[in-house]
Design a protein around this nucleic acid. Sequence first.
RNA 1: UCCUCAGUAGCUCAGUCGGUUAGAGCAUCUGACUGUUAAUCAGAGGGUCGUUGGUUCGAGUCCAACCUGGGGAGCCA
Length: 479
Amino acid sequence: MKRTEIKSLLQTNEFNGMVNVKGWVRTKRGSKNVAFIALNDGSTIHNVQIVVDVNQFDVKKLEKVTTGAAISVNGQLVQSKGKGQTVEIIAEELEMLGEADPNKYPLQPKKHSLEFLREIAHLRFRTNTFGAITRLRHAMIFAVHKFFTERGFYNIHSPIITGSDAEGAGEMFRVSVLDPKNPPLKEDGSIDFKKDFFGKETNLTVSGQLEAELAALALSKVYTFGPTFRAENSNTPRHLAEFWMIEPEVAFNDIHDNMDLAEEMLKYLVQYALDNCEDDLDFLSKRQQDAEKDKKQDERQMELIEKLNFVLAHDFERITYTRAIDILRNSKPNKKGKFVFPVKEWGMDLQSEHERYLVEKEFKKPVIITDYPKKIKAFYMKQNDDGNTVRGMDVLFPQIGEIIGGSQREEVYDKLYARIKEMNIEEKTLWWYLDTRRFGTVPHSGYGLGFERLMIFVSGMSNIRDVIPFPRTPQNAEF
RNA sequence: UCCUCAGUAGCUCAGUCGGUUAGAGCAUCUGACUGUUAAUCAGAGGGUCGUUGGUUCGAGUCCAACCUGGGGAGCCA
């Protein structure tokens, strides 16, 4: 008999005949004559209830039906007599697919801490929370491709192994096939990477931006969505060593078009989640509300779905770095000396306490900051006429901080070249990038969205390690 | 990497001023119960107190180092 997914079973209105369901047991409870099995197959967060007339089944077989076991059940689909569910299955045949010894199986029908579940990441898919996150994550991946496809973008697979640390975005993971104990050496004693696989030193990518720019300067609208690797020793709830990044790059777009695209995309993704993941968001909302109970009143977050709707309903605040500094300088916490890093002069980098203040206290909604001092930003950002600032933009979200970083790119060869020299970047490794400014260069813009940071926001989870199946962080690559 | 908090049963935690045989809830097991909703009720089993060293007549408790985890900071998306 063909398996029916629980998701479609629960939506059915037809109650005639047998069905087959397969899945994993969440709980079994009952009395002398009747037992109830809550079964889940991952197609939805909801379980289907299996009703078992204990007297019609082998006692030993039923004993093995414990939390975590996989079973297949044939039975009549009927309207439920009990409260709490509309339909249920009256079991006629029950087949054990895979037992789960209750004395060894670590998941119990009770609440587990997220820290504990991280230690059993191979099994945490089987919890409501991680089922919901996994389905939501898929929906967001799909929505990203849908958004860009609907707008005429082409997806680019930028290389994962790269030969240059072009962006200077962070420490890199080396890719090498040389014997680490006995590498070939040059005469001066340094490692001879000419003998390595690619004939040069190579690393895992820290960004697909530069390659995306090359494609944008031919196809006009492109985006990448791939894995990104940073070997920074970052230990925070917002950083991963391996994460997924979305990087659109658009020819002929200026910084304002870029902001429009970023805001439109974020709102599209949030709307898509609300439209397509209602059940999972409801669960995640309850989960979050539960977690919030332990926090102080003023530290509590807005309810998840309310928060998502709030973002949709309001325009992001767009301010320049200069204005941000003005606001911060005159803010109460700055005057009262509450900031760990007091805001004094123009030119300083904004600390996360400052970004937080702007987003959570001053504007109470997402904020886009533009026109940063060129000293604190990357070499490729378009220089303004004032000579001091560049057309960079950071989109700041509550709790997360920087969810998007982007800019209009410097398209004028001489200016870009001068900046490369100023910042002591090896121009030899960037000849191909510079070439695009020599042949048919045009203004263009783009940005990078950290996919897991988006997931934090949409799911209401507070730690980035809980929105990716197998997080890679310093000292942790177990699964 | 820095600051800070924590590590006690399968899980979540309590453990007073350093003092007898280290406790609870949940989970598990056994029994009871005619439809339960994280079922309920009764009982039972379950411990290298993160590791190593030190102080002490005596350490879960005090000290040191290390390991692991949380939160904050930096780096950034």
